[in-house]
């Protein structure tokens, strides 16, 4: 839930201190939360989040992801993460290692619920684009699986595991059981793929993966992967996927690029909790929901500028000292 200047519309990420001295662009001192409040973050919100997400993937602009993603509230962030993870899974399921059953034992639960709720609305546009490109590049099996993600749990779980390896640190790889890695050498499982077109086309890929996967310390494996597959649109989307999936993959550390506002550092990346921790660092007034506030008295006291008006829908006005000098009608 970042802040937005109501004057020029500039947004500030959750935790930004820039705005404390007024908007750097227009000097305004009226800001609002975006989106309004958690209670309104219903399906419509999730929908907009989905659109945002789709836009991101289509434009393939990773830096653009950082300001827009925090705009969703906690619940829709979770949904977005879920969707993104689904995409990662779908994409990676093109990796023949997806059929490896070992990974299945480790990640069976995460995939029953998430895909059903999020997958249908994920990114039909993206899907089409990818499908076209995929046809050209002969990785059509990826799309085939994308169409039927829920019923193929082994692949999904392996995809999850694979996603983990994508973002996992070398340390993690060393300490973790090698389930994420073991699938890779087992690439000959490709015949399991439901798509009839795959066997011949996917084979080159698997050989490439064979050369890549056994290298455990290659944390940026997706990049290498995309290079091998050339210019297909998925290369763009992949830039964001490992990161979002990192929020979902339980023990995957945040990527170095750190696009997400709250980097999951512990085993249970509860976004609400992380946001709370972040807010605790500086917020003097925490709006839990309209009409419910938590106040950090020391922050309120220490601060030169202060909130003079909390308004409807999460808007608020902060009094900036410079402006106070000129505008204070009381002449104190």
């Amino acid at each position: 839930m970042p802040h937005q200047c109501t004057g020029c519309g500039r947004t500030f990420s959750d935790g930004s201190k820039e705005m404390l001295s007024g908007c750097p662009d227009c000097g305004g001192n009226t800001f609002q939360f975006r989106p309004a409040d958690p209670s309104s973050g219903g399906p419509g919100d999730a929908e907009s989040a989905a659109q945002t997400d789709a836009t991101q993937t289509e434009t393939g602009d990773p830096p653009g992801g950082s300001p827009s993603r925090p705009e969703t509230d906690t619940s829709s962030v979770a949904e977005t993460v879920g969707r993104a993870t689904t995409k990662v899974r779908d994409l990676v399921s093109s990796d023949p290692t997806g059929t490896e059953p070992d990974a299945d034992t480790e990640w069976p639960d995460d995939w029953g619920s998430q895909p059903t709720s999020s997958n249908p609305s994920v990114s039909s546009g993206k899907r089409d684009a990818e499908r076209n490109a995929a046809d050209r590049d002969g990785i059509i099996d990826a799309d085939a699986r994308r169409e039927t993600p829920e019923d193929s749990e082994p692949k999904e779980s392996a995809a999850q595991a694979s996603a983990r390896t994508d973002v996992v640190s070398p340390d993690e790889l060393r300490s973790d059981p090698d389930t994420p890695d073991t699938p890779d050498p087992d690439t000959p499982d490709t015949p399991d793929t439901p798509d009839p077109d795959t066997p011949d086309t996917s084979t080159p890929d698997t050989s490439e993966f064979d050369s890549l996967d056994p290298v455990p310390e290659e944390a940026e494996r997706p990049d290498g992967e995309t290079e091998t597959k050339g210019e297909r649109p998925e290369t763009e989307t992949e830039a964001e996927r490992p990161e979002t999936s990192a929020q979902n993959a339980r023990d995957a550390p945040a990527p170095a690029s750190g696009e997400i506002v709250s980097e999951p550092t512990d085993e249970d990346p509860d976004l609400a909790e992380l946001r709370e921790q972040l807010n605790d660092q500086f917020e003097s007034i925490k709006i839990i929901e309209p009409g419910q506030y938590e106040l950090n008295l020391m922050e309120l006291y220490d601060r030169e500028e202060y909130i003079i008006a909390l308004q409807e829908n999460g808007r608020y006005v902060i009094q900036v000292p410079e402006q106070w000098i000129g505008d204070d009608p009381e002449g104190r």
Binding site: S284, I285, P290, G291, Q292, Y293, L295, L297, L300, Y301, D302, R303, Y306, I307, I308, A309, L310, Q311, R332
Partner: peptide, 26 residues
């Protein structure tokens, strides 16, 4: 009423911020 209560709550929060500010400055 709830609407009024929410408004009061908001004003009270502003009031605390104001009180803390007065304590610092005034």
């Amino acid at each position: 009423e709830k609407e009024d209560a929410v408004r009061r709550s908001r004003e009270a929060t502003e009031g605390v911020a104001e009180a803390m500010h007065w304590l610092r400055e005034d």
